[in-house]
């Protein structure tokens, strides 16, 4: 995935900025507490297919 995209993409529901988790290939949104998967280099920007972030993950992001 083109990392320049990260400056552009926002969460489709909250329009909040996204954090790129390179290791897990996910785009994380703090405001919606969702993780959007990147599959084969293509981000899946569907709230219905996003994973909810756990409390621990949220804490990590807020650190």
């Amino acid at each position: 995935m083109n990392e320049n995209l990260l400056d552009i993409l926002v969460c489709p529901t909250t329009k909040g900025s996204l954090i790129y988790d390179k290791e897990n290939q996910e785009l994380l949104c703090k405001s919606s507490k969702l993780a959007y998967p990147i599959r084969d280099g293509i981000p899946t920007m569907l709230p219905d297919e996003a994973r909810s972030l756990s409390l621990e993950e949220m804490e990590k992001l807020n650190r």
Partner: peptide, 11 residues
């Protein structure tokens, strides 16, 4: 990107 028009992932 996989997405839908009713919730666009752009600013």
């Amino acid at each position: 990107k996989i997405g839908t028009a009713d919730g666009l992932e752009f600013p």
